[in-house]
Design a protein around this nucleic acid. Structure first.
Length: 546
RNA sequence: GGCCCCGUGGUCAAGAGGUUAAGACACCACCCUUUCACGGUGGUAUCAUGGGUUCGAUUCCCGUCGGGGUCACCA
């Protein structure tokens, strides 16, 4: 068989470059020893998964901790799944979560283009070479034929797929091929595998360690009938030409590693190193079964979720880092003020088993991150969130910068001995401080109406906005004493039956009347911020609505 | 089902042939406290299972079980 001629017939493009052209155009990178070249290779489906960020972070840290390069390649080879604006979703997610890449889609670089659609000629050149060398062939099987074969294989408990005796088009005669072409039958290009599934070998995965790989025997499709490559083929060509040194990807790719190994070999490429990262899981149902975070079932699988809820990007990143490198958390606790870029990320510290998504942990980290912000930084963070997701009312909070800054300073405990950690997300923070902007709707008191009324009346009678904290609290105590509550906590504790309650119960009534909440920062300061007039109005309203 | 990966508290996990088996989150208790938080102290709780190797195994080996992934002209 004249394979050269066949290659010309199957891939008739006349404007293909010889392979040496690409090899010299995309010369090996000139980087210091140990520098890693890693990549982000999302497909533009319009959906960014937490797992995307997880893997992105690992690749980013690996590149930048080694003085290497991180690039972004858009894997847009599936025309059916392509979604308008999806690249923007990718770019904006990476920007929001602070994953900075050095070259790639939208910013360019020496190894582009970085959109696979634009690399079609390159793939076709390499595929043509494979055909000319007898390592790839045209397959004219229809989808129906393929699924019929697969069904039969499953029925007979055979390994499903296109291989060996089931690879009908593998040994088509020259006449048959040209007849099919003349008849205009659509075809795909398949790789001619020389592997044997009975042969196994040990492969070193950077994360999993030594693993057993079974040789590939599948004649996988490398060019689809539209002439666009499949993932496997594009991966081999691109990661070779872009000179990727290490590929960190989800462990769902482990199963196709044998294909990639054979493909790289047939193309004469040196295999990059691989690290297969386990995916983030979630408990499913009552039986305690685990599964991957699912795009369809779990809102928290989507990166949009964290943005809408107003999680600080650094909180999400920090949480992911704790999952990625087991010694990260220890480092963070030791150096709370250091940026996470200073942590020495190590691929060897990546876990082998899939972690369960832990919202509690994320929230704890979020509190800590937010409590480390200055009032101004918090203002900016909240403002940016409100711009995009806040209600009209919440957007109004930002019109008086001075006022909001006072509120934030108090609520965050800026300047106090200890910072407060009440804020978890932007959304929750804005809800929490809403009482600074409007009276609570229906304050819920634990005490009975009579008591509430008496306390509010008595306290507001003596209230003077000019009082300092001590004077203010002194009046709170007087109110307590006058109404049969203990003002002295020790006295109360030794004989609680002698009192209706203690000064904290009295304070709670005023607190709830002012804010609607039983838990707030220092009440005295809140009342100063609200202003005398507003405080009297709220006290009166609360007493009236009982 | 075939193939592959994984298995230390509820969760993330450190760990080593001999340890009182770290730490963090969550939970509980107490302390601090004008409430709430913060903070502090303490506590409950873990080596999936059977068999080997060994003086000794949670650690090494094999089986079992359990969980996960994958078997496309999707990535």
């Amino acid at each position: 068989m004249d394979w050269k001629k066949l290659a010309d017939a199957l891939i008739p493009d006349e404007d293909l470059q010889p392979l040496e052209y690409y090899e010299t155009l995309y010369a090996p990178r000139n980087l210091p020893k140990g520098a890693e070249v890693t990549r982000l290779a999302p497909s533009p489906t319009g959906f960014m998964h937490l797992g995307n960020l997880y893997v992105a972070l690992a690749n980013e840290r690996l590149a930048h901790c080694s003085g290497g390069v991180l690039y972004l390649r858009i894997e847009d080879t599936d025309s059916k799944r392509k979604v308008e604006g999806a690249v923007d979703v990718i770019l904006s997610s990476l920007r929001y979560f602070g994953i900075a890449f050095d070259e790639g889609a939208e910013i360019g670089g020496d190894y582009g283009p970085y959109y696979q659609q634009q690399r079609a000629k390159i793939y076709r050149a390499y595929a043509k070479d494979l055909i000319a060398r007898g390592r790839a062939y045209a397959c004219f099987c229809t989808e129906e034929e393929l699924s019929a074969v697969r069904e039969k294989q499953t029925e007979n408990k055979l390994l499903p797929g296109y291989y060996g005796e089931f690879a009908k088009c593998r040994n088509l005669s020259e006449e048959e091929i040209y007849a099919n072409l003349a008849a205009g039958k659509p075809y795909v290009i398949r790789f001619r595998s020389e592997g044997d599934v009975n042969k196994k070998s040990v492969f070193h995965d950077e994360i999993k360690g030594d693993i057993t790989v079974t040789e590939n025997n599948q004649d996988v499709v490398i060019l689809k009938s539209d002439g666009i490559p499949t993932y496997h083929f594009a991966h081999a060509v691109d990661d070779h030409l872009m000179r990727t040194t290490i590929v960190i990807r989800g462990e769902e790719w482990l199963a196709s590693l044998p294909i990639h190994i054979e493909l790289f070999g047939a193309l004469g490429f040196r295999l990059p190193r691989y690290g297969h990262n386990c995916s983030i899981q979630k408990i499913d149902g009552e039986d305690g079964g685990r599964r991957k975070l699912s795009k369809r079932k779990d809102p928290e699988a989507s990166l949009v979720f964290y943005r809408e809820e107003g999680y600080h990007p650094l909180a999400v990143k920090t949480y992911l880092m704790t999952l990625l490198n087991s010694n990260f958390e220890e480092w963070r606790l030791k150096f709370p003020a250091k940026p996470l870029e200073e942590f020495k990320f190590s691929i060897g510290k990546m876990g082998k088993s899939g972690a369960l998504f832990d919202l509690d942990k994320l929230q704890d980290i979020s509190k800590e991150i937010l409590s480390s912000l200055s009032a101004e930084e918090m203002f900016d963070f909240l403002s940016a969130w409100a711009d995009e997701y806040g209600s009209a009312e919440e957007k109004e909070y930002f019109s008086d910068r001075e006022y909001l800054l006072r509120v934030l300073t108090l609520c965050m405990g800026v300047g106090a001995k200890k910072r407060r950690k009440d804020f978890v997300t932007a959304k929750q923070a804005l809800r929490t401080i809403s009482y600074f902007f409007r009276a609570p709707e229906t304050p819920a008191f634990r005490a009975d109406g009579e008591t509430v009324k008496a306390v509010l009346e008595k306290f507001m009678d003596s209230y003077d906005p000019a009082d300092d904290n001590a004077a203010w609290f002194d009046k709170m105590k007087k109110t307590a004493d006058a109404l049969g509550f203990a003002s002295d906590m020790k006295a109360y504790k030794s004989a609680p039956e002698n009192y209706r309650g203690n000064v904290s119960d009295v304070a709670e009534i005023v607190r709830v009347a002012m804010t609607g909440h039983a838990n707030t920062p220092d009440l005295c300061t809140i009342m100063q911020i609200l202003g005398e007039e507003e405080c009297r109005r709220r006290a009166a309203a609360a007493a009236q609505n009982l």
